[in-house]
């Protein structure tokens, strides 16, 4: 063993304290970069940056279910929608509620709470929905979760369209206070990465990976399969709900069709391109695949043959990318490995 390795091992004794320090330094670096972005970029780019933060939250948290626990959830749009509606209904000013939501229950009509608790409430509602879907489905083998979560998306959309008193139906909710920004989205992104990292490196995370690799063997060794899978699913639903709230307060208007299957699919592609089971891969996949369609959209408009933009082209390229990754590089860019940040030590 080389001397360098030996010194790393010695440092390891104080690993936790050291990681805290180095992690703090990275967060300070991120904050500086965000501050730089804030003071130099125009609103268009700042919004894309904020969306990158949201997509990091979604991809990293989806990784828990689809990457580590080996399930396949397609519930992103549903959970985002639940989170967005919940948080928006809580954060809207009272005056606006009395004007636009005459049918709302009085207690809700009379309350308006700050962004942070509203967002957490959005996440909690999404998590509750995940428990309701997860309990019957996660006891089963096979990928019933994929269909059940798509079903949840349909249910959420139908409810949002029909529950006029609360959701205003197809008109949706507008005038949501524009509270979301890069600070909130990246703040939540850092928290998501931290929580997912901690879970994955805890006994629960080991249990998830064990279930993914061999379901029967894991159960035989005493892993509570249902509880572990449910934990992963509910936690990722919570963060998807949070992301929904962040998104709603960024675009300030939501309708039942704001959260479509396209969002879910694109997040899945971010995850598989980065590599399922790699947290850093998820972050990089989210960044790349937020920027790619954004630039392709400009190509679509530029290629406007005969006046009409080539709508659909960017989505085809994303889907093609997903299919090619699946066929030729199943493990994605990182294949379950992590990029070690310089200075951090393995716990």
């Amino acid at each position: 063993m080389s001397r360098a390795m030996e010194s790393v091992r010695r440092v390891n004794i104080n690993g936790a304290a050291r990681n805290l320090l180095v992690g703090g330094a990275y967060i300070a670096l991120l904050a500086t970069l965000l501050w730089l972005a804030q003071s130099t970029l125009n609103n268009y780019y700042l919004r894309i940056l904020a969306v990158i933060g949201i997509n990091i939250i979604l991809t990293v948290s989806l990784n828990l279910t689809n990457g580590f626990a080996g399930d396949f959830s397609l519930g992103i749009a549903a959970f985002m929608s639940i989170g967005a509606y919940t948080a928006a209904l809580l954060s809207l000013p009272v005056a606006m509620k009395t004007a636009s939501f005459p049918g709302l229950p009085t207690w809700l009509q009379a309350t308006s709470i700050p962004f942070l608790p509203a967002t957490i409430a959005g996440g909690v509602m999404a998590a509750i929905a995940a428990v309701i879907v997860g309990l019957p489905v996660l006891r089963l083998r096979g990928h019933y979760l994929a269909v059940a979560t798509l079903g949840l998306m349909v249910i959420v959309r139908v409810v949002a369209n029909n529950w006029q008193d609360v959701t205003r139906g197809a008109r949706g909710i507008n005038g949501i206070p524009p509270l979301s920004n890069i600070w909130w989205t990246f703040g939540w992104a850092v928290l998501t990465i931290y929580v997912v990292w901690m879970v994955v490196h805890s006994p629960y995370g080991r249990a998830m990976i064990a279930i993914r690799e061999d379901w029967l063997a894991a159960q035989a060794r005493g892993v509570n399969v249902l509880r572990t899978r449910l934990l992963a699913f509910v936690l990722s639903a919570f963060f998807a709900g949070v992301a929904g709230s962040l998104y709603a307060h960024l675009i300030t208007a939501i309708t039942p069709s704001s959260f479509s299957f396209v969002i879910t699919f694109n997040i899945v592609v971010m995850l598989v391109v980065g590599g399922m089971g790699s947290i850093t891969g998820s972050v990089i996949g989210a960044v790349l695949l937020t920027l790619l369609p954004e630039s392709l959209r400009q190509v679509e408009t530029a290629l406007a043959a005969g006046g009409t933009p080539l709508y659909g082209l960017s989505q085809i390229i994303i889907a093609l990318l997903a299919a090619l990754v699946m066929i030729f590089r199943r493990q994605g860019l990182f294949g379950g490995r992590e990029i070690r940040l310089p200075g951090m030590v393995e716990r």
Binding site: V268, Q315, I316, A322
Partner: peptide, 15 residues
């Protein structure tokens, strides 16, 4: 793995 085909079928659908 089954998931691989599942994702591919989503991609085919989108294409």
């Amino acid at each position: 793995p089954e998931v691989t085909m599942l994702i591919t079928s989503l991609a085919v659908s989108s294409i």
